[in-house]
Computed example of a mutant assay.
Amino acid sequence: MMTFETFGELLVYCIGPYVTLFFFSILTVIITLLTGIFIFQFLPESPFYLLSKQRRSLAENALILLRNDTRDGVKLELEYIQAIIQESEHTQGRIVDLCESKASRRAEITTIGLTIFQHFSGILPIVLYSQDIFNVTGSKIPAEYCTMSFGAIQFLSSFIAPNLVDRLGRRWMLFLSGMGMAVSEFALGLYFYRKDNGMTIDKMFWLPVASLLIFIVSYISGFGPLIWTIMSEMFPIHLKAAAFSVGFCIWWMLAFIVGAIFYPVSNAIGMSGCFWMFASCGFAGTIFIWAYVIETKGKSLQEIQQLLSK
């Protein structure tokens, strides 16, 4: 998912500066339609959905295609999915059930906390207003080239991050991600502080680009994809739907708030103050991860629930 998302942003950065808004809107509509046609034509239906509708043969064919395996090879997984569906039919969780035990409460606090720190680290304003940010830096590098580099590094990072996560684990990657985001934003805030106060920045023209590139690599390596990974691993089957519903609602609400207040806040306290505020949230996020978030890599659901209950 993160790879396709970053590819779309790279496309915007590369094409957007050179075409009209009308043409670009038409182009994005065409790409969306082609994507929809591809999905309906080539992608198989989810085995979970097909089994829930009692279409076992179609579910088996879909799983064979997805796993590139034989019927005997997917037989065990098919039975496992069937068992999960039968269990969920009898224990469908509600939103209020997220508070039913210490484990589910801690899991919900973890995911909500990570979502808050993700947004208030400034990812949305940086992605949406990257060219505007580069314009006000006064850098000698043209803003459109900076944003293209920004998008390219972001796209390439989406291929590297999964390998690092498998090696280091979720908790360490989140910690390093938050630290990298905070340090890079502190450096960017320092650049704007010197610029706004008339200090010499001629020899620091590279700092805004380097800071934002480090920021986006750090984000893609941890805070970007891992929140949803951890959410899917922490909750039992019957609570996943409720947990994701709450998580997505909070995610979009915070996205709207942070996107709406960026310009008013930056006008009120300056770009330096704004980025230092984001950096402070990033440092606070690393403390939260170190003190509260558990490692879920390689652990069964039962082991995760035991850790959450401690």
Rank of each mutant, 00 (worst) to 15 (best):
M1I: 14
T3S: 13
E5K: 09
T6D: 09
G8V: 06
G8D: 07
E9K: 05
E9C: 14
C14Q: 11
I15R: 09
G16M: 11
P17L: 09
Y18E: 03
L21C: 03
F22G: 05
F23N: 08
L27W: 03
T28H: 01
V29K: 01
T35I: 03
T35C: 07
G36R: 00
I39K: 08
P44F: 07
P47E: 06
R55L: 09
A59T: 05
E60R: 06
N61I: 12
N61F: 00
I64R: 01
L66I: 15
D72M: 04
G73S: 12
K75L: 02
L76K: 11
E77H: 05
E79M: 04
I84E: 14
Q86K: 13
E87Q: 05
H90E: 09
T91P: 00
Q92H: 11
I95K: 02
V96S: 13
E100N: 03
K102P: 01
A103G: 10
A107D: 06
T111V: 15
G113M: 02
T115M: 15
I116E: 11
Q118G: 00
H119Q: 13
F120H: 06
G122N: 11
G122L: 07
G122Q: 05
I126M: 10
I126A: 00
V127W: 05
V127F: 04
V127A: 07
S130D: 10
D132T: 15
G138K: 03
S139R: 06
A143K: 09
E144L: 08
I153R: 01
F155S: 01
L156C: 12
F159T: 04
N163C: 00
D166M: 09
G169A: 12
R171D: 03
A182T: 11
A182Q: 10
L188N: 07
G189D: 11
Y191A: 02
K195Y: 11
D196N: 13
G198L: 08
M199S: 02
T200Y: 14
V209F: 07
V209M: 13
L212F: 08
L212K: 08
S218I: 11
S221N: 15
L226E: 07
I227E: 00
T229Y: 12
I230Q: 04
M231T: 08
E233W: 08
E233R: 06
H238K: 14
L239Q: 13
L239I: 07
L239K: 12
K240R: 12
I250K: 13
W252G: 03
A255M: 14
A255V: 15
F256H: 06
Y263Q: 12
S266F: 02
N267M: 11
A268F: 07
M271E: 13
M271K: 10
M271G: 10
G273Q: 06
C274R: 01
W276A: 06
M277F: 13
F278G: 12
A291V: 04
A291F: 01
Y292I: 08
Y292R: 01
V293E: 10
S300K: 03
Q302I: 14
I304Q: 13
